[in-house]
């Protein structure tokens, strides 16, 4: 399943005094099985872009294609579309509303019109995916849980629709390191199992270790895209887009400047460690 944006432009409050272009001629393709990280400073249009992926917002001009079909065209079933492209908003725990965890997670699958057995199976699977204990938590009120648990329930609510493409808007915002690692671990697993993932993130460190491709937005325009290794090399462009680069990449560049013979495109802590350990071995020998 591939998602394609063709020359998508989106203007808020078109025609009024408050008119503002949030997206400006964005074209990009998200292929099956990719892990795409969508990065950019606040107000660059990331959140607007993700809402185009499941038809919550319609482009002012341009098209969004799912497997070649215009998602805003005639005869498209919106519910089916939103089930295929699951969108997890920022702070999703603020959308919980049901009396029990089970009922809340079941909301999506029920809207799909699935049988009670199937809904139950999906609730179980989704809870497994987000590492929540079914027997212990399923009848609890979601409002009694901890912040991190609530977020996982909310994500399970989207996973239960078994989307082909999972879009997450800053899923770790506001979480402590433990909560963050849990969510990221879970997203990594889902990607490994074959789900296509699009993740909006502010943390270049998280992006570095997860994404297969990065899409960089700046002021509503596509600044660059490519594998993290390629993107993190473009330091100036990243700085212009108001973005940091991983510390490992910074160290690599600082060391090269001091005459340490390293490849210039290292950005992962582990690979940098390997290179440095190797150099140390050679230096001692």
């Amino acid at each position: 399943m591939s998602l394609e944006l063709k020359h998508v432009t989106y203007t808020y409050s078109a025609g009024s005094a408050f008119q503002a272009t949030a997206l400006d001629d964005i074209s990009l393709t998200i292929e099956d099985g990719e892990f795409v990280a969508l990065v950019g400073h606040t107000g660059c249009g990331k959140s607007t872009l993700v809402q185009h992926l499941n038809g919550l917002l319609k482009p002012t001009s341009g098209q969004v294609l799912l497997d070649g079909q215009d998602i805003n065209g005639e005869g498209i079933n919106r519910r089916e579309l939103r089930q295929k492209v699951g969108l997890v908003f920022q702070y999703p725990e603020y959308q919980l509303f049901e009396e029990t965890v089970a009922k809340d997670i079941a909301f999506g699958p029920k809207n799909q019109g699935l049988s009670a057995d199937e809904v139950d199976r999906r609730v179980r699977r989704a809870m497994e995916h987000v590492h929540l204990n079914y027997d212990k938590l399923v009848e609890r009120s979601p409002f009694e849980l901890s912040g991190g648990q609530m977020r996982r329930v909310a994500i399970a609510g989207v996973l239960a629709m078994e989307p082909k493409v999972l879009v997450l808007d800053e899923p770790t915002a506001g979480l402590d390191p433990r909560g963050r690692d849990r969510i990221l671990g879970m997203v990594r697993e889902l990607h490994r199992e074959g789900t296509t993932v699009v993740m909006v993130s502010h943390s270049m460190e998280d992006v570095a270790s997860l994404a297969t491709r990065m899409v960089v937005l700046s002021h509503g325009r596509l600044a660059t895209q490519g594998a993290p290794r390629e993107v993190f090399k473009q330091r100036e462009l990243m700085a212009e887009a108001g973005l940091d680069i991983p510390e490992a990449a910074k160290l690599c560049q600082a060391l090269i400047a001091r005459g340490v013979p390293l490849p210039e495109d290292l950005y992962l802590q582990d690979e940098l460690r390997e290179h440095l350990a190797q150099l140390w071995k050679e230096a001692r020998a």
């Binding site: 510390e247 910074k250 160290l251 600082a254 060391l255 001091r258 005459g259 340490v260 460690r273 440095l276 350990a277 150099l279 140390w280 230096a283």
Partner: peptide
Amino acid sequence: LRGDGMPLSEGILTVDEMAEEVSRLLC
């Protein structure tokens, strides 16, 4: 890296400190 045998001092916090020590050891 200390585990890999590189004698880096404890308490390194920043990229600059790290670059300083590593380059001193390697070059």
